[in-house]
């Protein structure tokens, strides 16, 4: 058993390829058998991944889902930011720059509106749960943007560590819900063309959520959604500790 684990851990990336290949196979099979191909195989594979991540998290008490098993640690390399962004950039190959330029205004405004809406919703929810200080409200609002904007804002304004942890949780909820919900909601919101994909990426902003959600909906939309989503976290980190916090402090006073 020790030898098994050490061989697996030493070849982590290869184990990840094998595991993900199996998940994709299972996803495709379930898609054909259970939904007659209506829900894409990749959407089911992503869902399976999330369920396994939950199971892994409860068993190992770690923070990286299935990757916290030593034998499966390669999953965090394969699914980590480096290879994820590398693959996202590669999807832009062959994209017509004119399409992006034409949707530029709506995409750009979507980023600002998306960040703003998340801030407001997060802060309102936090206020409903009894938080009254601008620091906590700003941090939880920022967490509703993405799980990176939350801690960045929280650290900058000096929020308490349990509030920062809550903001990360809010961001994680958003990312998971976007991954799972996008293929289901796509027909209702007209998410079937590059332009709405750019608006979608700007409004939701969570890179992992948008990446997973669009992959499960229609892979050809990925480059457009990713293009705007990539600016979202930066804009959020810019506005969270500054404008948003200052406005909140003016409203609640302190």
């Amino acid at each position: 058993m020790d030898q098994f684990t050490s061989v697996m851990a030493d070849n982590g990336l290869l184990v990840a390829f094998a595991v993900v290949g199996t998940l994709m196979l299972a996803g495709g099979w379930l898609s054909r058998k259970l939904t007659r191909g209506r829900l894409q195989g990749s959407a089911i594979a992503i869902l399976l991944g999330l369920v396994l991540a939950y199971w892994g998290g409860t068993v190992t008490d770690g923070q990286h889902g299935l990757a916290d098993f030593a034998a499966l640690s390669g999953l965090s390399l394969m699914g980590g930011a480096m290879l994820r962004d590398f693959a996202i950039v590669s999807t832009a190959y062959g994209v017509d720059l004119k399409v992006i330029r034409r949707a530029g205004l709506s995409g750009g405004l979507s980023i600002l509106l998306g960040v703003l809406l998340s801030f407001v919703v997060g802060a309102v929810v936090a206020a409903l749960f009894g938080y009254t200080d601008a620091r906590s409200l700003a941090t939880i609002g920022a967490g509703a943007a993405t799980y990176i904007v939350g801690p960045v804002t929280g650290t900058a304004v000096g929020a308490s560590s349990d509030v920062i942890a809550l903001s990360v949780a809010a961001g994680l909820v958003k990312s998971v819900v976007v991954m799972v919900g996008t293929p289901l909601i796509a027909p209702l919101i007209g998410l079937n063309n590059p332009k709405s994909a750019m608006a979608f990426g700007g409004l939701l902003g969570t890179t992992s959520g948008v990446a997973g959600g669009l992959a499960a909906t229609d892979k050809r939309l990925v480059p457009y959604g990713a293009m705007t989503a990539t600016f979202y976290t930066g804009v959020g980190c810019l506005l969270g500790p500054s404008l948003f916090y200052v406005v909140l402090r003016a409203i609640v006073g302190g």
Binding site: I46, L50, G212
Partner: peptide
Amino acid sequence: IVVAMASA
């Protein structure tokens, strides 16, 4: 890669 990301 996105499936791997989801599982981690």
